[in-house]
């Protein structure tokens, strides 16, 4: 029996035909901000739900001169981020970095870096469920009509129910936004803390959902407004403590459980931000501390 010929791969894994198809979808998405463009998502060498959409978008826009940063939960060193970064280092031989300002392309899962993005950068979001109406209406044929006719009342019914039952809008991540006053969009499961960073960002923001076969985009300086009520305005989480490592405040924190007696500490979710501050001489308290996250509605009171 003969051995099958060993596989060889194109630059950045995808063949050029596929990249062209995806680039066309990206261009359409940029032309219609917030609109979910169907694309013929390919089987990728990583599992669905692990960033196949983001990886396809990144593979299609990546050039040999790009500098790639990959984060998951804000961190460069979480296993899936390491794995995706290694994938591109292998199949595209591109330079990689952990520094936000050095990257030309940042692929992310669940966070937007604390360092403001700059003109010329592209951030690629991995998206599990692109349809903001999915959990209100499971049927794709119906949600497409709802988007087409701007029938978004149901989203507010959900927010209304949150307030009626909990006193607050109980959506803390994947918080729906309205883009340029037209399409309601799922920002991917970033915490709502990061929502304001999308508004008028000078960077190009691309969203890829592999399993659901959708690409959408926010061109630079797009209006991105989180949905709310006039008398229950959108607010973000605030942490009334400082990072134990770098003393940062007004950033998104990870809670770390330090022992089995309730000891915990808070550190920056964005590891690059934290490391940069520490290299500049900032130092946090280090010890476990007691800190409560305060939501914005409290801070406003």
């Amino acid at each position: 029996m003969t051995n099958p010929s060993l596989p060889a791969y194109n630059f950045a894994y995808l063949d050029e035909q596929t990249k062209r198809m995806i680039r066309r979808a990206i261009l359409k998405a940029i032309a219609v901000p917030g609109y979910q463009v169907p694309f013929a998502s390919r089987d990728m060498p990583m599992p669905y739900g692990w960033g196949t959409g983001g990886v396809q978008v990144t593979a299609s826009i990546l050039g040999p001169d790009d500098v790639l940063k990959v984060i998951d939960q804000g961190a460069d060193d979480t296993t899936n981020a390491v794995s995706i970064r290694a994938f591109f280092a292998k199949v595209a031989d591109v330079a990689t970095t952990t520094r936000t300002e050095d990257a030309t392309i940042i692929q992310t899962r669940h966070r937007i870096p604390e360092t403001p993005l700059a003109h010329g950068q592209i951030i690629v979001y991995q998206v599990p469920i692109p349809e903001p109406l999915r959990f209100l209406e499971p049927r794709e044929t119906e949600t497409r009509v709802m988007h087409a006719l701007e029938e978004y009342g149901l989203v507010h019914v959900k927010l209304y129910e949150d307030i009626a039952q909990h006193g607050h809008i109980a959506t803390t991540y994947a918080y729906p936004v309205k883009v340029e006053g037209r399409y309601v969009m799922d920002p991917s499961p970033i915490p709502k803390f990061d929502n304001p960073k999308m508004h008028h960002s000078p960077a190009l923001q691309l969203f890829g959902a592999g399993r659901e076969k959708r690409i959408y985009a926010l061109p630079p300086f797009t209006d991105v407004v989180s949905l709310d009520f006039e008398d229950h305005p959108f607010t973000v989480q605030r942490f009334d403590c400082r990072c134990a490592l770098c003393d940062a405040q007004d950033v998104y924190m990870d809670e770390v459980i330090t022992d089995d007696r309730g000891g915990r500490m808070f550190v920056c979710s964005d590891t690059d931000h934290c490391e940069t501050r520490r290299s500049e001489g900032c130092q946090g308290a280090g010890l476990p501390q007691h800190c409560t996250a305060k939501a914005g509605w409290e801070a406003a009171e």
Partner: peptide, 19 residues
């Protein structure tokens, strides 16, 4: 969905945004 939201749905559908 609560009685209030059932009644309020049409208002929200036509753009009322004051809870």
């Amino acid at each position: 969905v609560s009685a209030g939201a059932n009644v309020g749905e049409r208002l929200m559908a036509v753009g009322d945004r004051n809870y």
